[in-house]
């Protein structure tokens, strides 16, 4: 139970980062933290079924469910793609406006730079 509460806390930290921080890079970090908390939650869920790793060597039985692990591989790669694209967009905004602060960017865009 404690690990689930910690994961919820991790998710909330990421969400707080997205909602409350002004710096675009910190918002992207928040997105990453949320992604990681969900990945760990899925792996944790899959491990409820058994105890050994799903590598079927001689004498291995009572394995954990490998399906969430395989799905989370996909989620990790897509998380990498999202952060790369988000960082590139943030950098582009920085080049255009000279700041990472989201409110400054908004103000500058309103005033037509």
């Amino acid at each position: 139970m404690i690990e689930r509460i910690l994961l919820l806390g991790m998710f909330l930290i990421g969400f707080w980062g997205i909602v409350s921080r002004k710096n675009l890079i910190k918002k992207i970090f928040g997105l990453n933290i949320i992604n990681n908390s969900v990945v760990i939650l899925f792996v944790l869920e899959g491990s409820r079924a058994g105890s050994s790793a799903p590598i079927m060597e001689q004498g291995i039985s009572n394995i954990v469910d490998p399906v969430p692990q395989a799905l989370m591989l996909t989620a990790i790669v897509i998380g990498v793609c999202i952060s790369a694209l988000a960082l590139a967009l943030a950098f582009r905004l920085y080049k255009a406006t000279g700041t990472y602060n989201i409110q400054e960017i908004k103000r500058k865009v309103h005033n037509g730079f």
């Binding site: 799903p54 590598i55 079927m56 060597e57 490998p66 399906v67 692990q69 395989a70 591989l73």
Partner: peptide
């Protein structure tokens, strides 16, 4: 494949 995660994906 012995590694079932590889076998799945």
């Amino acid at each position: 494949a012995i590694n079932l995660v590889s076998a799945i994906y």
